[in-house]
Simulated assay, not measured.
Amino acid sequence: MIISRVKRTLPRPGHLLTVGLALLCSLLFVLPAKADPAPFDDCPSDTLCLYSGSDGSGDRRDFTESGNAESYDATWDGKTLSAKNNTKLWACVYVGTGYGGLLQTIKPANSDEYSTDSRFAGTISSHKLVPSRAHCFTGYERCPDNRVCTFTEPNGRGTMTVHRPATDTATKNYGNSYGSDVAPVSVWNRTRKHVCFYPEPDFTGTWTDPADGQVYGAYVVLRGDSTTVPAPFAGTFRSHELVNGTSECQ
């Protein structure tokens, strides 16, 4: 009778260690990599964050809800390529200073990207935070009380010039130093008198309406009124005075 004997080989401790290390390495290889932070995650709450790179990258400038800026300093002007509005207000960003030129609006808690839009990439020069989107399209609120304010763009936008009351009771001069750089396109008269505008710096001159040929000696903005100036008056004011009644206009 032949008896077959099977020789059993016990695994050596070194072999078990090798297998264990292999399994551990395979587990390490399948662990998920640490995710990069989401864009704009670094923007603090109650803050408008402007970035010099796309998707919230690059340098960051922070502005609080009261931190409206009619212009930026030279180190930031035209640098914004993306933005995060982490406030409860609407954010309005503008290509021009003084809330002028093209504009974009950003809803509360939203972000915006400008790097792929040639109209806004490297051109943003001012911003403000407002309670509703409609406020992005006007800038009259900048005018102080008891002043006549003129603006270089419609609806109180663009460069604003503030005119203070004069002390000359004879001429009632409230301003005659207009130039092409401050030629008014809109006006807010926040005084208690009416204001008469003229096309000449000495409170004289006339306009002729090409539509009907009518001649006008003064353009009047009543006390408390704000308006966008129509043709043929827009951009042509060179002086103005305050009067108690419109019949007093020169």
Rank of each mutant, 00 (worst) to 15 (best):
L17R: 15
P39F: 14
L27A: 12
P11A: 05
T18N: 14
G20L: 11
G20I: 01
V19D: 08
R5K: 06
F29N: 10
T18G: 15
P44C: 05
I2T: 08
F40M: 06
C43P: 02
L28V: 07
I3Y: 00
S45E: 09
R8C: 01
L23R: 00
P44L: 09
C25R: 05
P13W: 07
I2N: 06
L21V: 07
L28G: 06
L16S: 03
D36A: 11
T18K: 14
L10N: 10
D36I: 05
T47I: 07
I2R: 13
K7M: 05
G14P: 01
D36M: 07
D42L: 08
S26E: 06
T47V: 09
P37C: 01
L17M: 14
K7V: 13
L16E: 03
G14N: 04
D41K: 09
H15T: 12
P39V: 14
P44S: 07
L21H: 02
K34L: 07
A35V: 10
A33W: 06
P39H: 10
I2G: 01
T47G: 11
L16I: 06
D41M: 04
P32N: 11
R5G: 03
V19F: 02
L31M: 15
K34D: 02
K34P: 01
S45V: 12
D41H: 10
R12M: 00
V19R: 11
R12E: 04
F29W: 11
V30A: 07
L23I: 04
A22G: 08
D42E: 13
A38T: 14
S45Q: 11
A33L: 10
L28F: 12
P37F: 00
A35Q: 12
P13Q: 11
S45M: 12
V19H: 08
I2H: 13
S4N: 15
T9R: 09
T9L: 14
L28Q: 08
L27S: 12
L23W: 04
G14L: 08
V30L: 15
L21K: 04
S4H: 15
P11T: 02
F29E: 07
D46N: 13
T9N: 10
P39L: 15
F29Y: 06
G14I: 00
L16K: 09
F40R: 03
F29S: 13
K34T: 07
L24M: 06
A22L: 14
P39I: 15
G14M: 00
R8T: 02
C25H: 08
C25G: 14
C43Y: 09
V30F: 05
D41R: 05
L16M: 05
R12Q: 03
P11H: 03
G14K: 05
L24Q: 05
H15C: 08
T18F: 06
R12P: 00
F40V: 02
V6A: 11
L31Y: 06
D36V: 07
R8V: 01
